[in-house]
C-alpha cells in the first residue's frame, strides 16, 4: 500500500522566477510529501522523462512567462505519447482566468493563481492523489 505522495515540481519555459515553485515545494514537503525539484528552464521532454524515471504521482508546473498554453499542450501530448497521461498535472503562476478554463479543458487538473493559500494547494493535491488511486 502506497501512502507517500511523490510530486514533481518543474519550472518550464524561459522565465527565471522560481520563488513560487520553491514556496510550493516547501509547503508540500512540510505536508509530508516527497518533492522532486528540477529547477529552471525545463523542456516538456525533460519533464516527461523525469516523471517516468521518478515514478511521480503528480506533476506541478510553475509558469510565469505567459507561455502556459503552448507548454501545457505540448506536455500533455508528450505524456500521452509516453503512456503517462494518467498522472494529474496542476499549474501555478500568472494565468488569466480565460486561459485557466482552456487549460482545464485541455486536461490540466487544477490552476492555482496568485494568492492561493498553501493549505488549499496541499488539500487539492491530496484530493487529486486519492482520486487517481495508486
Amino acid at each position: 500500500m502506497k501512502d507517500r505522495i511523490r510530486v514533481l515540481i518543474a519550472k518550464p519555459g524561459l522565465d527565471g522566477h522560481d520563488r513560487g515553485a520553491k514556496v510550493v515545494a516547501k509547503a508540500l514537503r512540510d505536508a509530508g510529501m516527497e518533492v522532486i525539484y528540477t529547477g529552471l528552464r525545463q523542456t516538456p521532454e525533460q519533464i516527461v522523462k523525469t516523471a517516468i524515471q521518478e515514478d511521480v504521482d503528480l506533476i506541478g508546473l510553475s509558469i510565469l512567462s505567459g507561455a502556459h498554453m503552448n507548454i501545457c499542450s505540448k506536455l500533455l501530448k508528450l505524456m500521452k505519447e509516453n503512456g503517462i497521461e494518467n498522472i494529474p498535472v496542476f499549474v501555478g503562476g500568472i494565468i488569466p482566468p480565460d486561459d485557466a478554463e482552456e487549460l482545464k479543458k485541455m486536461g490540466i487538473k487544477e490552476v492555482f493563481g496568485p494568492g492561493t493559500p498553501l493549505s488549499v494547494i496541499v488539500e487539492k493535491i491530496k484530493q487529486l492523489f486519492s482520486e487517481v488511486g495508486s
Partner: peptide, 28 residues
C-alpha cells in the same frame, strides 16, 4: 524529515544535462 515524513529531493537539478539521455537513469 523525521518530523513530517516529507522530503525535498533536489540532487537531480545538478544532473540536467543527462535528462534526455536514455542510457542514464536517475532516481531520487
Amino acid at each position: 524529515s523525521p518530523f513530517t515524513g516529507g522530503a525535498f529531493l533536489g540532487d537531480r537539478i545538478r544532473m540536467k544535462s543527462h535528462f534526455l539521455d536514455d542510457s542514464v537513469f536517475i532516481r531520487s
